[in-house]
């Protein structure tokens, strides 16, 4: 019995540890390939590392490799994903500014609550909302339960926590709204009127162009861009949230 418990305890941390080691190997291989100028190989390595354990640094490097390969769309998507995971990543922000200026595409137009949701990582907003709801509820109810008089600071803190909770609720809505945001991956990607291979092409999109996914049908996504709404092949469009 003891042996079984011991095996279980030693085996449990193994899969994440092994995965992390593999990720680090891919990351190191990617860095080495990039420094040798083998950008296509570097992109493959970074992509593998990001698929195993997505991280902001890996995605920044993936974007750099794709950019050096001349793939502006995948590069912009990788940097946007890096900012999705870590909004404070300065490298991703600088690279996005550079890339958008170089290929003359616009940044996605965000609503106020979407902009707000970009101030912190997506997961942080959920925990912030949960913590502040608990804090506000606790501060309102605990003094009464514990037969203590409600002090002024109790009420002030409860009001503050309630405000932060409501604030973070809007940010959470922004996060959910931004999950539909994506970017065109290929240059001259056709935007079609119908979700068919022979559908009429209503616009041709540049790689890195932002768009919002509305729905899916077969192997096509209905997206809304500044050039209109239409269907695009799913392989030519990637969502920031990776869905």
């Amino acid at each position: 019995m003891k042996a079984a418990v011991l095996i279980l305890l030693t085996a449990l941390p193994c899969p994440p540890g092994a995965a992390r080691a593999a990720t680090n190997d891919c990351f190191a291989d990617g860095v080495a390939a990039y420094r040798l100028g083998q950008f296509a190989r570097a992109a493959r390595d970074f992509e593998k590392a990001a698929a195993t354990r997505p991280a902001a640094g890996t995605l920044v490097n993936l974007g750099l490799s794709e950019w050096q390969c001349g793939h502006a769309g995948p590069a912009i998507l990788a940097w946007e994903r890096a900012r999705w995971l870590d909004p404070f990543d300065a490298r991703a922000r600088e690279n996005l500014r550079f890339a958008r200026h170089a290929i003359q595409v616009e940044a996605p137009g965000l609503k106020w609550f979407e902009t707000l949701s970009g101030w912190l990582p997506a997961g942080a907003w959920l925990w912030l909302a949960g913590a502040n709801l608990s804090l506000a509820t606790g501060l309102m109810l605990l003094p009464g339960i514990l037969r203590r008089p409600k002090a002024g600071w109790h009420q002030a803190m409860a009001a503050g926590a309630l405000c932060v909770f409501l604030f973070s609720l809007t940010a959470n809505v922004g996060v959910l709204s931004r999950t539909r945001l994506g970017f065109v991956l290929e240059d001259n990607a056709p935007l079609r009127l119908t979700p068919t291979r022979d559908g009429e092409v209503t616009a041709t999109l540049t790689g890195g162009e932002p768009a919002r996914k509305l729905r899916t049908r077969g192997k096509y996504d209905l997206i809304r861009t500044e050039y209109g709404t239409g269907w695009i092949d799913r392989g030519q469009f990637g969502l920031v949230s990776g869905q």
Partner: peptide, 24 residues
């Protein structure tokens, strides 16, 4: 100089379980 590609990130950074937000 403000507009230029950054250097490589030296470390992967804090990993996330997935890109899917926990709100979902």
């Amino acid at each position: 100089p403000s507009l230029k590609l950054s250097r490589l990130s030296p470390a992967p950074g804090g990993p996330a379980a997935s890109l899917e937000p926990p709100q979902l």
